[in-house]
Design a protein around this nucleic acid. Structure first.
Lengths: 239, 239
DNA sequence: CGGTGGATTGAGTGGCGTCAACCTGAGTGG
DNA sequence: CCACTCAGGTTGACGCCACTCAATCCACCG
């Protein structure tokens, strides 16, 4: 149930046997969502937080004139709305981007667990801090990088993140996101995603067919993306 | 010392007398920084976190070819690097954008205080969650809004934030940021900031002279910005 | 009084948006 | 088994928002 989450937490710090059990006991059974289905809505005050077990979810903001932004994408092991534990009204909607399985943790149990286990509290806090670090990197992308560079950066980031939860295969991973979804992540139009993908393929940096991305030239892709994985904090430290 | 921080925390939840004392006792004496001077550098592993007492600071990322992004701006009462408590290496630099006074809290004291007072732990966690909520709003701005709309949005946000720590005067507040700094916040060039400011002034939405911003027409400014202050979480809730 | 940082303005350019057409593959129903 | 629909990918033509380069202005200061 909490498999990918535990995997990821253990990449960042040592967990005691007791802490491991507490995390395992925290998650309720999973529920299935269809692509496009909202998991939590803007304005909601959920009494629980949601963890992705499988599939991809995104944090979506709906703006004026039908525009959309995706401020984060999440895969197995990610809390999609841990922040709602303290940040009461949701400032965005979380939607399933593919078929997903989501399990939930009631906030009162989260509160009890974090009061009893301050170290776990810090690790959960850390998860939200990494989310924020990713937000900052996306801000840099949106503000100062070209469309192709943003795409390259996203592909690099997602390789590291899928790798952390054993969902990658070398330089290849399943990426079942539509071009329109990528567009909302990158702040460009779907048409321009298409053209930029074409350029990346033409230059031999990636392959991307049928929901699977393969990085054909990691060095040149990271160079184009100006990618440095430090911000993902995938190293073990006492926290 | 911790005046503005306490003000802000108390806007978000009730603090007991004891908690108030703990927060007051946490902060070391302030230190002065000159405009442009780094407060914490990318790659550093500071043993303390910094709180702005006065002045403005920004979180800066340096990208390829001399480009810069500012992912957040901070004013009195803001922790600029509370995330370094758990996120060990800094993923960006924090610089003084104006003359600033900064006080620091050693991480070991932060750890002790949060272990003893879980409610304070949640309130500090909350501060970082609000930072993340602001990041998400900036992502929406950078991805899907025009230059003038981004400027308008920033001005609205900063009015609410200065108001929260008693630094505004009605619809007016001191905003001593250069156009080049605004440009790095908004992902546009300084030249274009200038042109967009000109348009906002021409349309009677703002006045902006000599480091002071006055909002001349709040309704039309928020409309242009598509501004909704919910994400700032400036309401009191049990957390 | 020359030097300097910042604001302002103009002219020309380019990356990306918009609109629209067309293609393909996966259903779906007759 | 095939016509039909529909979602999503692909491509072209054209336009605009914002970038680049550069000149000018102004306040401040040593």
């Amino acid at each position: 149930m909490a498999g990918s989450l535990l995997l990821k937490l253990k990449k960042r710090d040592h967990l005691s046997a007791e802490e491991t059990e507490v995390v395992k006991a925290l998650c309720a059974a999973g529920k299935a969502f269809k692509p496009g289905e909202p998991i939590v809505r803007e304005g909601d005050r959920p009494g629980f937080s949601s963890i992705v077990q499988s599939g991809w979810a995104g944090r979506v903001k709906f703006l004026a004139e039908g525009r959309r932004t995706i401020s984060a994408v999440h895969l197995a092991g990610d809390f999609v709305d841990l922040h709602s534990f303290l940040l009461k009204p949701m400032d965005h909607t979380v939607v399933a981007l593919t078929e997903c399985r989501i399990s939930t943790v009631p906030h009162d149990r989260l509160k009890a667990a974090t009061e009893r286990h301050p170290h776990l509290a810090r690790l959960f806090w850390l998860e939200t801090l990494v989310d924020a670090a990713i937000h900052r990197e996306w801000i840099a992308c949106l503000g100062r990088r070209t469309a192709a560079s943003r795409l390259a950066h996203l592909f690099c980031e997602l390789l590291m993140r899928t790798e952390a939860v054993d969902l990658s295969d070398g330089l290849s991973y399943g990426l079942p996101l539509k071009q329109a979804v990528l567009a909302d992540c990158l702040g460009i139009t779907a048409v321009h995603v298409n053209r930029s993908l074409k350029a990346l393929r033409r230059d031999g940096l990636i392959k991307f067919d049928d929901g699977r991305l393969t990085i054909a030239n990691w060095d040149r892709l990271t160079e184009l993306a100006d990618f440095d994985p430090t911000y993902l904090n995938l190293t073990s430290e006492p926290r």
